[in-house]
Amino acid sequence: MTSKKNVYFKKLLFLVVLACCAAALYQFTDVDINFFSFAMRIRGPRLAAMFLASFCVGVASILFQTIINNVIVTPCLLGMNALYVLIHTSVVFLIGSGSKLSVNSPISFVVDLLSMAVVAVLIYGYLFQKAGGNILYILLVGSVLTTLFSSISTTMQRMMDPNEFDQLQNSLIASFERVNADAIWIAVMAILILVVWLWRQFPLLDVLVLGKHQAINLGVDYEKVSRKMLVGVTILIGIATALVGPISFLGLIIANLSRQLFKTYQHRYLTFGAALVGMVILFAGQTLVEQVFHFGANINAFINIGGGAYFLYLLLRGEKQ
């Protein structure tokens, strides 16, 4: 057993080194030494945002897959992306793109985060209890909400002034280029609070892998643990989305890469693995966007193309098994 543990640690260490290299690559490629501190001030927050986004999306995806007991679901299904689009569309539609709420500032971040937290607690906390712990019901609610939010957003976007719409489009695509430092500190605080709140549930996660009945058999309060975890996942995805835009599709890729790499059920390896894989992808991807494409392409496009292809691969592989 200890040899297995060593292998896991070696793999984690390898990922840490890889992520550090990718981070250094991003941070120090093509820096004019005369403007060193200026470049760091620009790239620093972006690096931090990518770090936090990978952490949130990676951990949330692994937890979500465990709660649903399915390895090809993504927390996109919770409707946080659509809610983000709805919030931003409503703000621009109702008070205009020049308003304080709309220009990128910590206020906008806090508004996003609070709305998502409210939805997480109200819908996923309360409804889950009402549904008697039926997880498929939650997925259904998530997809209905996604459709509802998107329809409202689309309606507003159609009625909007074209210039305003143009402004809006900017904030609806995931990007690390407009992150600001204050938002990052708020995000760090939010993540810390969440981790403290969920701390006692983490050791129970491995048991959830066995499914509801076996978890109950082994003395785990299945409903309470999965309800808390579900709310936690929603808020984590909310933090990442509020920070950089709709990005949760990344979760499918990194969660499954982590599963392929570690081939275990143990969450302490899977979650950190997913977060680290996410960092490697984002750091390297953003370096490409900035150095090779000179901002001509958006990292989101790469994530969606790569993610789509990988999803198909997972489906086809699953069919073979």
């Binding site: 897959q65 465990t66 007991n69 399915n70 390895v71 892998v209 066995l210 499914g211 509801k212 009945h213 076996q214 109950i216 058999n217 082994l218 003395g219 599963r259 081939k263 275990t264 059920y265």
Partner: peptide, 17 residues
């Protein structure tokens, strides 16, 4: 859980175990 064990038919495991 130390006194009473249950085993049902719905034991789908999606992970590597």
């Amino acid at each position: 859980a130390k006194k009473l064990a249950i085993l049902t038919q719905s034991n789908h495991i999606a992970m590597k175990l």
